[in-house]
């Protein structure tokens, strides 16, 4: 994707502009560049400011320029968040909840996505559409009964209960992505394996699953991001302060330390680090997933 826009989609335009060197085309080019610069600056500005503020000593936050002077840079705020706010614990909690959820969602979505793409059974369309309908169901419409249901099952205040809710509510979208991915794989593979006498589960496990890695990677990124960032369910279903994942913790930190900006900014920065790393490293799979999910269907 990185070079393809220039190479494939609009090859003639820049070339044309360069060839003719018309003043108007050059001006348009410059304006376009300027627009992109302004938009990118606007996107990055608050985040850069957050990073810089997290490195300031508390007493210079409300005065001084945009950039802190090099000699006043300090990691005190990070130290404080790390020890004072028990950050490692909540980080670990979030990581475990996210990892288990992602694993569960990928497993269930791969299995069902494959079935909907390559197996034939009665009522397939109806079942598929019913399951998929939950994508359009607003979470605020089910948060109350989910709360009551977890309470009845004794799973309120339990990370296991939260994970089950996460898996249950996110698997339909992941299944949709995996089905779209499996449909890009030739069915002849399945048929050939069947002719060879392989059982259905063996076909799935040995033939199709090894080919599913790119699709699964997309699901992993989306799910990792959504679960890591989820707030409403975590805030509602968990109450023990020490069991909380990062998002509700950050929410309460903002409430309690609303004037300690370096501490706030350090906490926020640490919380988004894993996400930003995952996204920047796996950007291509993310874009591929969007193509699969939003454009193809």
């Amino acid at each position: 994707m990185s070079s393809s826009p220039r190479a494939a989609a609009a090859p003639a335009l820049p070339a044309q502009a360069r060839a003719r060197r018309r003043p108007r085309a050059l001006l348009g080019r410059a304006l376009g560049y300027l627009t992109l610069l302004v938009v990118a600056a606007g996107s990055a500005y608050p985040l850069v400011w957050m990073l810089l503020t997290s490195l300031r000593p508390r007493n210079t936050v409300f005065g001084g320029g945009f950039f802190p002077s090099p000699d006043e840079i300090t990691f005190d705020a990070y130290r404080e968040a790390w020890t004072g706010l028990d950050f490692p614990r909540h980080f670990l909690v979030t990581l475990v909840i996210t990892a288990v959820t992602v694993a569960g969602v990928v497993a269930l979505a791969t299995l069902s996505g494959y079935a909907f793409a390559h197996l034939e059974f009665r009522g397939k369309q109806v079942i598929y559409v019913t399951l998929l309908s939950s994508i359009m169901l607003p979470v605020t419409a089910i948060v109350i009964p989910l709360f009551l249901e977890l309470d009845t099952l004794g799973l309120l205040n339990s990370q296991g209960g939260l994970i089950m809710v996460y898996i249950g509510t996110s698997v339909p979208f992941a299944m949709f992505l995996m089905r779209a991915f499996f449909e890009t794989l030739p069915r002849e593979l399945v048929n050939a394996a069947r002719v060879d006498g392989a059982g259905e589960f063996a076909i799935f496990l040995r033939v199709m699953l090894p080919l599913a890695a790119p699709g699964a990677a997309t699901v992993v990124i989306f799910q990792f991001m959504n679960t890591w960032n989820e707030f409403l369910f975590a805030q509602t279903f968990l109450q023990q302060p020490e069991d909380l994942p990062l998002q509700p913790v950050l929410y309460s930190v903002v409430g309690q330390h609303s004037t300690d900006w370096p501490l706030l900014c350090a906490s926020l920065t640490m919380s988004i680090l894993p996400i930003v790393v995952v996204y920047v490293r796996m950007q291509r799979r993310f874009v591929a997933g969007l193509t699969l999910g939003a454009v193809k269907n």
Binding site: L108, A109, L111, S112, Y114, A115, F116, L119, E120, F121, R122, K124, I127, T130, L131, S134, L137, A141, I142, P145, L146, E149, M164, V165, I167, G168, T169, V171, P172, M175, R194, E200, F201, F204
Partner: peptide, 24 residues
């Protein structure tokens, strides 16, 4: 194949029933 289809879809359907359909 049809049996496998139902079995493969069953876990998702169960999740859907418990965490989406019933709450709704």
């Amino acid at each position: 194949a049809a049996l496998a289809g139902y079995l493969f879809v069953l876990p998702v359907a169960a999740c859907f029933a418990v965490f989406v359909a019933y709450p709704f």
